[in-house]
Structures are given as C-alpha cells and as structure tokens.
C-alpha cells in the first residue's frame, strides 16, 4: 500500500510505514546522542580506575564497584581539605531550599499585589521587574559583590541565598502574576465582604488554590539555583561553597593520576537532585503552567 507523505497518520495499520520509521529513527538517534554523556558518566563512575585507563568509555564495567561513589562522598579533596563533597551537598541543600522557599513566597505575594490590589504604576513596576529577568548575570557580579560587602554578608550562605532570591523574584513574580490574573476577582470581593483583609485573603483563599503555580515556581527555581555556578563561585568561598563550585574544585584539585571514576560519581551527586525533581515533578510543571489558562 502506498504511503501518504502528507498525512503520516493515515499510514497507520496499512502496512510498513516508511515515514514512521524515519520519524522514530530520527527521534531515537537524537535521544541517544542526548543521553550519551549521562551513560558515559554512569558507566565510568562504577568502574575501577585501571579499567577506565585500559578500556573503551562505552563498555560496561567488567567489575562493578561503588567505591568511587563512597570516595566522592567521604574522601574527595576540595582544595586543601579532603572530607568529600558531603559537606558541600549539605550547603547546596540548605541554600537552595531557603532560596526557593523565600523567592517563591515573595513572588506569590508580588503576583497577588500586582493583580488584586492594583495601584498606580503597578504595570510599570511589573515591567521593570520583568526587565530584570533578562539582565545577563555576569553584569551584576561586581555591583552585587559591593552590595553584599556593605550588608556584611559577603562570602556566606546568607549572601548567596540573598542573591538567588533577588534574581529568582522576577520569574516567580511572573508566574504568580499570570496565574493570579486568571483567578476570579469576585472571590476577593466576597472575602472582603466576609471580613478578610490583605493577608487573610492571601493565606486562606489564594494560597490553597495556588498548588499548580507553586509547583511550577519551585521546580524552576530549584533547578536554576541548584545548578547555578556563577553566583556560587562569585559569592561564596571555602566551606560555604555550594556543590557546583565544590565539584569544579574536586576536578581541579587532583594531582598526578586523575580519578575519573570519583569525578564522575561526584558529578552524579551534583546532578541527581535536579534529575529526580524532573522525573517526579516534570509533568506537574507543564500542568501547572496550563492550569491558569483554562477556565474551570
């Protein structure tokens, strides 16, 4: 049966469909190319060092070992101290959770004010905030360093959290504003008549219905803040550095023989949280973005 190039769907069930083959083939190939680095990392992290030097990077380990993972966690050398990356993992966790919570909360409040308590200049203010989303972060490094110094929180986790909150605000405000625009104004009016004021309305009425957009903001912020290297490298030092910076130091610290397997394991530790967030939360991200746009 002849296939129809205009409507590949019509070829379904009508025999061997070349167009289908091409599409799936292309997608499969691209997926493979995309996954290859991850595959290599995983395989390398489970191999003992001699095998890595001897063998082919794509070959399965002849001898599976989790020693590199334990080494990375407990004993890897970051700069002068060799206590593994566990401390830095904890730094990242602390910093990210704090920054995500604060930026999401403030962003939601901002969205609430901008949509439900319109004041003169609200749109201009929002425009300015949006503008800040597009500033390349490299430009603000020096001014920010000055500000942090003046505030007395330079080179600390607090400082890093502050920076992430400030630069995360534009996104969380954007998401929240768009979501709350679709939220019926009459609900706010009804709550006002019932005697609820600004914060009560936020806590009791708006927030409980904000599930979808909270998920969006959290996933977005978590991914960006956890993976960030620029701010981490610029605004923290030594013991307060996040994972990403520590990872870079691990790789640069090694002298002589390079323990690739330990490096790969360390990199996996760095990548795992965001990977997990995506696997378990990914579908909620899209759902959340669409939630405000369809009238329920």
């Amino acid at each position: 049966m002849a296939t129809d190039w205009e409507t590949p769907q019509m070829a379904q069930g009508s025999g061997f469909a070349w167009s289908r083959l091409v599409i799936y083939g292309l997608l499969g190939f691209l997926a493979l190319v995309y996954l290859l680095p991850l595959v290599v990392m995983l395989l390398t992290s489970f191999k003992p060092l001699p095998e890595i030097y001897a063998g082919n990077i794509l070959s399965l380990p002849k001898e599976w070992t989790i020693a590199p993972w334990i080494d990375a966690w407990e004993r890897a050398c970051v700069g002068l101290s060799c206590n593994g990356i566990k401390g830095y993992f904890w730094n990242s966790t602390k910093m990210t959770v704090l920054a995500v919570t604060l930026s999401t909360l403030i962003g939601l409040l901002n969205g609430y004010v901008l949509t439900k308590w319109k004041f003169k200049g609200a749109d201009l203010l929002f425009g300015l905030m949006l503008f800040s989303c597009f500033i390349p972060f490299q430009i603000v490094l020096i001014p920010m360093a000055t500000v942090l110094g003046k505030m007395g929180i330079a080179s600390s986790t607090t400082g890093l959290v502050f920076v992430h909150v400030v630069y995360g605000l534009c996104f969380t405000t954007l998401y929240a504003r768009n979501y709350y625009m679709a939220f019926p104004d009459e609900l706010i009016k009804a709550a006002m008549i019932d005697g609820a004021h600004f914060f009560k309305i936020f806590w009791r009425i708006l927030l409980p219905s904000s599930g979808p957009i909270i998920v969006v903001a959290v996933i977005w912020q978590f991914t960006n803040i956890w993976n960030d290297f620029l701010f981490g490298a610029s605004f923290s030092t030594g013991e307060s550095a996040p994972m990403t910076v520590a990872l870079n130091n691990v790789v640069n610290t090694s002298t002589g023989e390079r323990p690739y397997n330990v490096h790969m394991a360390a990199a996996m530790f760095a990548a795992l949280p965001t990977l997990l967030v995506y696997i378990f939360g990914g579908r909620y991200f899209v759902r959340g973005l669409m939630a405000g746009s369809v009238k329920g």
Binding site: E186, L187, K189, A190, I193, R204, I205, P208, S209
Partner: peptide, 12 residues
C-alpha cells in the same frame, strides 16, 4: 451581604 454572578464560592 452580597451574592455574585459567578457565585464566588471559595474553591478550597
């Protein structure tokens, strides 16, 4: 007390 066109019931 007010009754709105869209009922304005608290969804949560």
């Amino acid at each position: 007390a007010m009754v709105f066109q869209s009922y304005a019931l608290y969804p949560n």
